[in-house]
């Protein structure tokens, strides 16, 4: 059968439902090159999911140098936190090492800030789409997270639920996080309803952000939940801004 009958790449990726392009294959045969790319894309999806998970464990443990090492460190890196946006090759270093504190920070005063800080961002409900060209990927997770912080010498638990959106890029050092955004649903003390709590954002005392955070949804009884904030990853062929 002519490989022209293989319609996997004939349909446009944009707007296709997940799996649509590959679920109706008239001719299941592939060239070795096509199969190789598909295996690379499947492997990439697993690697990107591991990157998101690794972020969670390393971030919880304040291993901020290793968190930063998960990022691509390109001029086009972008990290969007609820309190501001970091851009550029040093975005991850500034966000996680300078504004937050690494577990091996030699400054005793900074190290002291780690006491009572427990942040556990779960990564659930994954959607990971690897570009048809195998060079970039997009991921989205729900995060029913929790935190605890010192308050007047005692511990205080918090619910801190959010979404994490990440773009990934294949570099010479392998797959790396390229763009990273956290979208808060709510952040509330353990014993308070999120529907009755004022908007709250944990932000570091030191901030080297490049610009303020964009306006984002945060639950209030009057807030209308936005469409696609962020956009839900869909199949795509190649990265476009």
């Amino acid at each position: 059968m002519n490989m022209q009958d293989n319609n996997a790449y004939d349909k446009p990726a944009e707007g296709a439902a997940p799996g649509e392009r590959f679920n109706h294959i008239e001719n299941p045969k592939r060239t070795q090159e096509e199969m190789s790319l598909e295996f690379e894309r499947l492997t990439a999806a697993k690697i990107c999911e591991n990157l998101a998970g690794s972020f969670s464990y390393l971030f919880s443990a304040n291993r901020m140098q290793e968190v930063s090492d998960l990022f691509a460190h390109t001029d086009t890196d972008r990290i969007t936190m609820p309190y501001g946006v970091y851009k550029g090759a040093d975005a991850a270093d500034r966000c996680f090492l300078r504004d937050m504190v690494d577990i091996d920070d030699p400054d005793p005063a900074r190290h002291e800030e780690l006491k009572g800080r427990m942040i556990i961002p779960d990564m659930c409900t994954p959607i990971v789409e690897v570009a048809g060209d195998g060079k970039t990927a997009k991921g989205l997770w729900n995060s029913p997270g929790l935190e605890a912080h010192s308050k007047d010498g005692a511990g205080q638990g918090w619910w801190n639920w959010s979404k994490f959106a990440m773009d990934f890029i294949l570099t010479e050092q392998g797959w790396k996080i390229w763009h990273f955004s956290r979208y808060l649903y709510f952040s509330t003390e353990y014993l308070k309803s999120w529907a009755k709590s004022p908007k709250h954002i944990f932000a570091p005392a030191r901030l080297t952000i490049d610009e303020p955070a964009p306006e984002q949804y945060y639950y209030t009884p009057d807030a209308v939940y936005p469409d696609e904030e962020p956009a839900i990853p869909a199949p795509y062929d190649t990265w476009t801004e």
């Binding site: 443990a61 304040n62 577990i103 006491k115 009572g116």
Partner: peptide, 15 residues
């Protein structure tokens, strides 16, 4: 065990 003076351990667990 969480406490207001406790620092999160490095390797619980190590990914």
């Amino acid at each position: 065990r969480y406490g207001p003076d406790v620092i999160m351990p490095r390797n619980e667990p190590d990914p």
